[in-house]
């Protein structure tokens, strides 16, 4: 990837409510355009049903637009086939979801190592990378613990370590603090801000939480189709 710019051009995304009906379509995005520059921390906001998660899935190659272009780092990913997309995701994207989706049978260390199984790293290199990622999220001392032995915040930290272990340039976070209390949420958001500022990760985060959005450098409100450079200073400007 030459740069980490994210561009969505003339995106249309529709869902069909029923398989048997052709006129029963829900339009989620209609001619939607978006550009996120490399190194930005963007919060996507808006009420439920506005297509925030759908946008995240389009950027992450988990879903394809009905029409339009999804261009990441200069590569149009909506033209890639399933196996190409799988490979592309492994190389370029880290995901953090509201539910951590850690494998319960694996320790924190093994969970973080999981994406590295797709690389050419040997066992000791994988262990080293995973240990580094865990210490970055302050979870080194919990490396041997299983998910059920961790708190919600700790599980989310491990999920973040798993997302960054293969050093992707882009982190996509879907309500990463949705299940957490305020204090723990602030810790997670600080961690994401640190990853953005100190390690140059491009972060796109879906959230309902205005406090969470304050950590972002840009907020995009899908309801008003506006963005604000400082979330705490609500000055909406139409694009």
């Amino acid at each position: 990837m030459m740069n980490n710019n994210i561009e969505l051009k003339a995106i249309n995304k529709t869902y069909q409510k029923s398989k048997n009906s052709t006129d029963n379509q829900v339009v989620v995005h209609d001619n939607f355009n978006l550009k996120i520059n490399s190194g930005e921390f963007v919060a996507l906001m808006g009420p439920s049903g506005m297509g925030k998660s759908t946008l995240l899935h389009l950027i992450g190659g988990l879903d394809k637009p009905t029409s339009g272009q999804v261009i990441i780092g200069g590569e149009q990913i909506n033209n890639l086939n399933e196996s190409q997309l799988t490979r592309w995701r492994a190389d370029n994207i880290g995901f953090v979801f509201q539910s951590h989706h850690l494998l319960p049978v694996l320790t924190a260390q093994a969970n973080v190592e999981l994406p590295l199984a797709l690389t050419h790293l040997n066992k000791s290199q994988r262990k080293h990378h995973a240990a580094t990622a865990l210490s970055l999220v302050s979870m080194a001392d919990r490396a041997k613990h299983f998910p059920k032995e961790l708190s919600g915040g700790q599980e989310q930290r491990v999920a973040i370590a798993r997302a960054i272990v293969s050093d992707p340039k882009i982190l996509l976070c879907d309500e990463p603090t949705g299940n957490l209390d305020r204090k723990t949420a602030d810790e997670i958001l600080s961690l994401l801000a640190k990853l953005n500022k100190e390690y140059g990760k491009t972060i796109v985060m879906v959230t309902h939480d205005l406090k969470a959005a304050e950590y972002a450098s840009k907020v995009i409100n899908l309801e008003t189709y506006t963005y604000d450079l400082k979330a705490h200073n609500v000055q909406e400007a139409r694009l």
């Binding site: 799988t86 979801f97 999981l114």
Partner: peptide
């Protein structure tokens, strides 16, 4: 978990 692994890049 399987969906997550697919998202991580497992084919």
């Amino acid at each position: 978990e399987i969906a997550m692994m697919k998202a991580l890049g497992f084919s």
